[in-house]
Design a protein around this nucleic acid. Structure first.
Lengths: 142, 142
DNA sequence: CTACGAGTTAAAGTGCGCTTCAAGTCAAGC
DNA sequence: GCTTGACTTGAAGCGCACTTTAACTCGTAG
């Protein structure tokens, strides 16, 4: 199990060294042992980093991600708060997926239609908003 | 067709008046006619606002959204750039949905498992990352 | 011994999407 | 005439997630 410098971890993970230091200060990454002042990581850090990136890219704020990874790593589990966060985030993820789905559908439709007027496609948007299908409204977007 | 003040539009749309002014300056909303200096909107603005909010909430930047709505409204259509943006955004939306799906799956699983150690669940995360299923890895997370 | 590259810190800077502020205009009501 | 409240503008401020900067310490190579 090699010991890795912050530069090596940055290179291998694709996350900048400055971001890794920032995550550490923010309580997302545990402070690794130092060799003459320099951080030495072991390979398990990659799992943690992947977890952090997934959470952040899924829309968690840094402090939400902190609670998430700390609750997740089960030392001092603040189970109640963790579950509350998880439940809230599940709803947000559903909303996010729904929005992405609607936007995709709108983009795909307007990609292939030569919709002459904004209004027509807004009517489509309205349809998308309410029913969410890829079906087309009777009135527009040939 | 009533003429609406910015305050009325803000109230009805749920978007702050300051944000509406910002959208106008940013070229997302057309500048409406003024009555003694004050903006007067008609109801069609709500469609535009919904379009803008959907795009922004789906992860478009303001300038992407500007291209999107302007290309969409078909006066001076910069079709090539529009289609390029649309294609790129479709990919991003797919990535976003995939991330949301993975995060959801992780959250749901760890919600109901009393996973004792971070590593085990990271192994699960690895499984989620590679295969993306809700299936469970042989080794962890009872 | 010197120079170099990679690391260290605290603090300041960045870009985005707004929000807030300060100072002013306008129409309506008393 | 005066006040009130909603509006106007440009400019400054904010929160977030980092990045950049400045000044410094190490270990290694020449």
């Amino acid at each position: 199990m090699r010991e890795l410098s912050i530069g090596e971890v940055a290179l291998a993970s694709g996350v900048a060294a400055s971001a890794l230091r920032y995550y550490e200060k923010a309580g997302l990454l545990p402070a690794p042992p130092r060799r003459s002042g320099q951080r030495r990581y072991d390979e398990r850090v990659f799992g943690r980093i992947a977890l952090i990136r997934l959470a952040l890219e899924a829309g968690f704020t840094v402090s939400e991600a902190r609670l998430f990874v700390s609750g997740f790593s089960a030392d001092t589990p603040p189970a109640a708060r963790w579950r509350l966060l998880a439940a809230r985030k599940l709803e947000e993820l559903n909303a996010q997926m729904e929005r992405a789905r609607r936007m995709k559908s709108l983009l795909e439709t307007s990609f292939r239609c030569r919709c002459p007027r904004l209004e027509d496609c807004e009517r489509y948007l309205g349809a998308v908003k309410r029913r969410g299908g890829t079906r087309r409204s009777g009135s527009s977007c040939a």
